[in-house]
């Protein structure tokens, strides 16, 4: 399958549309970890993230003919994954609301698991990651999507604009606002 590295993503999806299933496998190999990172940072749960990535890739399989050559494959697949992740979060929010409404008042208080940093650079870095991840989860969805795509996935503003289907200026403004909110949430930690 090494020879498939010669092909661009767009060439692979076209080969797949023509019936070459190996092209699909190659696309999955190229995108599974990228999508996993994006979706995990978005939903904050490994199992759910993996399910969502699988569902997105199944959609690529079943809806392959919906892809049109005018767009980049990455734009298309990130859009699918992002939409599925948002749907999952909305479902989760509804479930949470229902569960909370079923609880008594005394049951509603809960403690977040304590994250105690130990010594060592690796642990500190892991601690920082956990703090950032928690701060990202606090962002509104429209800020969260764009800041992950920009600062973690390192996509261009133009591609993000196409993925979220929002004007370029709005994307830039949302990313800036998201970063300001993140620094506000993280300023008590010495890393920031």
């Amino acid at each position: 399958m090494d020879k498939d590295h010669r092909y661009t993503d767009e060439a692979l999806i076209i080969r797949f549309q023509q019936g070459d299933e190996r092209a699909y496998i190659e696309l999955v190999k190229r995108y599974r970890d990228r999508l996993m990172t994006f979706v995990f940072r978005f939903v904050g749960d490994m199992e759910q993230a993996e399910d969502i990535v699988q569902d997105a890739l199944v959609k690529v399989y079943t809806h392959k003919h919906y892809y049109k050559e005018i767009a980049k494959f990455s734009t298309w697949v990130y859009t699918i994954a992002g939409n599925l992740a948002k749907t999952e979060l909305r479902k989760r929010k509804r479930r949470k609301t229902t569960l909370l409404s079923q609880m008594g008042h005394e049951e509603r208080d809960y403690d977040l698991p304590a994250v105690q940093p130990e010594t060592g650079e690796a642990v500190e870095s892991e601690f920082a990651e956990v703090q950032i991840q928690e701060a990202i989860q606090e962002l509104p969805l429209h800020f969260r999507t764009v800041v992950i795509l920009r600062d973690i996935q390192e996509l261009s503003y133009e591609e993000i604009s196409r993925i979220v289907d929002v004007p370029l200026g709005t994307v830039k403004s949302r990313i800036n606002r998201a970063r300001l909110q993140l620094q506000e949430a993280l300023k008590e930690f010495r890393h920031y």
């Binding site: 990172t37 940072r41 993230a49």
Partner: peptide, 8 residues
């Protein structure tokens, strides 16, 4: 720090 976060 976000750019340094590891891939999942």
């Amino acid at each position: 720090n976000m750019q340094k976060m590891p891939d999942v």
